[in-house]
Amino acid sequence: MKKLLLSAATLAFAATGALAQDIVRLGTEGAYPPYNYIDESNALVGFEIDLGNALCERAGLTCEWVQNDWDSIIPNLVGGNYDAIMAGMNATPERAEVIMFSDPYKLPDPSAYMALAGTDPSVMEEGVIAAQSNTMQSGMVADTSATLIEFPTADETIAAVRNGTADAVLADRDFLMTYVTESGGELEFLATVPSPGAGVSIGLRQSDTELQATFNAALDEMKADGTLNAMLVEWFGDEVPQFE
């Protein structure tokens, strides 16, 4: 009701979306440890949950998390079900055509092929490679001569390698790391490939420039005072590339 009385000038402000309400809904997948996942107490946890909450606190926003499966995570953003995506999403040029990104909060994740120990590296060109659908990596596999199989969740791609459906999986190296170290030598990296794009970033509607500016300002602060680096180390270990 209040909105009807607003002048044209404030209306333009309101038009930029989420900020007007000071409640920002953040979409995440909740199935991508350690980026974001549901723990045993049924709470959303992970690097991005910690980071998102810290960003909102700095920006004075009230944030709410929304869990959404990966395949429809971008359609639901542009459809307005939430205002931002923090789900280990790399800012690729392809995605930048349809949505907009903040500055990166994690430097470009290299992708890696992971396979059972002893797998011949030639499978990367001739074998069957699993990838999560609608990811950067599924596009990368589609461009090679290997056979792509797509799964809706990242967890299923790992299962496919273990049970032999796929020869290898291509995914973010930092996601695969836990599986390799905990497998006791059963799984290993075949190769690491650099990822295109600026790095893992917050996805936003292209019309939401104001929210982008707010998040970027808060990110700059966190990069400057070292809190972002501390968070990265906490969740990904010492070897994670840090911001200067």
């Binding site: 069957v128 699993a130 659908s133 589609a142 056979t147 792509l148 199989i149 797509e150 799964f151 299923e156 496919a160 459906t165």
Partner: peptide, 8 residues
Amino acid sequence: SAFPAWQQ
């Protein structure tokens, strides 16, 4: 359901 799509 669970069956993955091969080569789209």
